[in-house]
Design a protein around this nucleic acid. Structure first.
Lengths: 337, 337
DNA sequence: CGTCCTCTTGAAAACGTTTTAAAAACGGCG
DNA sequence: CGCCGTTTTTAAAACGTTTTCAAGAGGACG
């Protein structure tokens, strides 16, 4: 009969042992004799005992939770990452505390505060801005941090990212090979690292093809990277006249919005304008005009980041910080054949 | 200079007060004199003190976290719900612990155990199956539970749902009005309440139109409700010959997969087969053939559920359990005009 | 039978808060 | 100046674990 909160002490009395022994059964079962262990386990079952996580982390000095702060939980890219994180965390008995920064630095900071209060074991974060100082403060507090989708600049921290320079480059050289002369790059804030890197990659591709970035590339900046912004960007582009002949969007949500905006205005894709997105989220293969995109190992990103984090937490001695960099892959579909 | 874990005690000595006073500043600022409060707050800032959530919940008897267990974090429907949940929780200073059951009852149970260990204040859950007994156990432990996307049968619990019977009915009567004679219903496990209810609605619509469900409706069951399953269902349907002239998918992911499967096999939508999905996730308006669907107030679902939950937690006395039921809306697009 | 080991168990002290009951400070007033 | 009612502060006892250290229980062996 599971009652409202049974403590280890009640389990102890029922099993005829001391609380310390029960704790041992829970945490180092091998240290306790077979027969008593069985007795204790039976008592646990009978009473419906569930360990009190707060008490446990208070005393033990660390919790079994990790914090995950993402930029946009509505974006399938982050959802895939989150799924990977949840998978690994759950396998290892960790709980995931979810924070959605919505690209807002204040909100992100509030998330980190909540994580600090909860004394999470570690934090996985795709930073919404360029200022990583707050993260060092966390580390000083003994909370490990792994950067996700953002390569670490320093060697004393872990990160898992995908080479966005390569990605930007792949995208733009593909557009060039399709005959593009003037390309628009629709991007989120350049303080978001991936956006900035994809731009660098784009420019490199132009340089490699002997084009002048200043003439070939037009940047269109939006503050939030969703389909609505993409569509607005399309409308602005169209209103401005003089359309580019290719558009590279910094993520697929923008690209889908752009596609919709273009089609609604009667612009034909890819005939009038070719279009390429980024992330290769599931849905772009099914869109009105299927989108070319840059694929990233998203789920993997989440898994590996979490493995790194938990390794750092569990083996603080032997842990070697790693900056893992995956390679993106060009996926060609109708929108930019 | 924020050091590794400053305690309330250190704040107290620096401010020249007792720990109890610091605690009061934190929790009932109005109880402490203006001048000392200022002094304490300064000490808190100087030392970079952050309240230890575990200690706090241990003593206070309740935490500031809620658990959220969803069936498929990869499905934009749940993502939208989660975003709503996170929003409200975050506004009220609660942290959200995320659990993804993947439709697996064992995994769901493990999530609930984790929630129980963390002593979450409450749980939001879209149950992966029909057995809600575990939830009563949680309630006995003093953890409030709000059902999400699953109407409560009993009056002593809160729930937030959308009328799936109406939804199923809307979908099927629309298909009938388009001239459908034989309809396939592609669904997840019927132990998942929404799937079952949408079927009931579908049959009602048939009955209302004077059709015999046994002859008109064919059920195709899949175990996991994603695009891959949808496509497989299409392939099976096609291999089986004798195609229906309309397909109703229990969610949009299935519908997108179905669409792809049909198009790849050269079946024209909506000319040969008309197709309608469910949820009206963002992406279906942009798909190759834009999908008709049943829209639900997804984000709202998450927000309201969380408000209900936190109300139940914060005002246990005055809280009145509510079973909220939203109404779905038919959205007509190309796939079933 | 006593000694010495090893293997198990137990007692008690933390961990950092919150909360309660009581003490201290303060002001006003007789 | 002493007393009383209020406001403000404090000391100390929890909350449920984990952990350390010592004590107890069994054997094996001399």
């Amino acid at each position: 009969m599971p009652m409202g909160s049974v403590s280890i002490k009640e389990v102890a009395t029922r099993a005829g042992v001391s609380p310390g022994t029960v704790s041992n059964v829970l945490n180092r079962p091998e240290k306790v004799a077979e027969s008593t262990r069985a007795r204790v386990e039976e008592a646990i079952r009978d009473l419906g005992f569930v360990r009190h996580g707060s008490a446990s982390s208070l005393r033990a000095g660390h919790s079994r939770t990790v914090g995950l702060s993402v930029i946009d939980i509505g974006n399938p890219f982050f959802t895939d990452v989150a799924a990977g994180v949840e998978e690994v965390a759950s396998e290892r008995g960790y709980a995931v505390i979810l924070g959605n920064s919505s690209g807002d630095l204040l909100k992100e900071e509030r998330n980190l505060l909540v994580f600090a209060e909860q004394r999470v074991r570690g934090v996985l974060i795709t930073p919404a801005g360029a200022n990583l100082a707050k993260l060092d403060q966390l580390r000083e507090r003994g909370i490990s941090v792994v950067l996700v989708d953002h390569p670490a600049e320093r060697a004393d921290q872990c990160s898992v990212a995908v080479n966005d320079i390569t990605g930007g480059s792949l995208a733009v050289s593909h557009l060039l090979s399709g005959g593009a002369e003037r390309i628009a790059y629709v991007t989120g804030p350049l303080t978001v690292r991936p956006c900035a890197d994809r731009l660098i990659g784009a420019k490199r591709a132009l340089a490699a093809a002997g084009r002048d970035p200043g003439e070939t590339l037009e940047e269109i900046s939006v503050s939030v990277m969703n389909a609505r912004s993409g569509q607005q960007a399309a409308e602005k582009m169209i209103a401005g006249g003089r359309l580019p002949d290719a558009v590279f969007c910094a993520n697929d949500l923008l690209a889908l919005g752009m596609l919709r905006g273009l089609l609604q205005a009667g612009v034909r894709v890819p005939r009038d304008i070719s279009l390429i997105g980024y992330d290769d989220i599931d849905f772009v293969s099914a869109s009105a005009v299927s989108l070319s995109s840059i694929r990233q190992p998203t789920h993997r990103l989440g898994r590996v980041a979490t493995e790194l984090l938990l390794d750092e937490c569990d083996n603080p001695g032997s842990h070697a910080h790693q900056q893992i960099m995956f390679q993106p892959e060009l996926i060609i579909r109708e929108s930019a054949p």
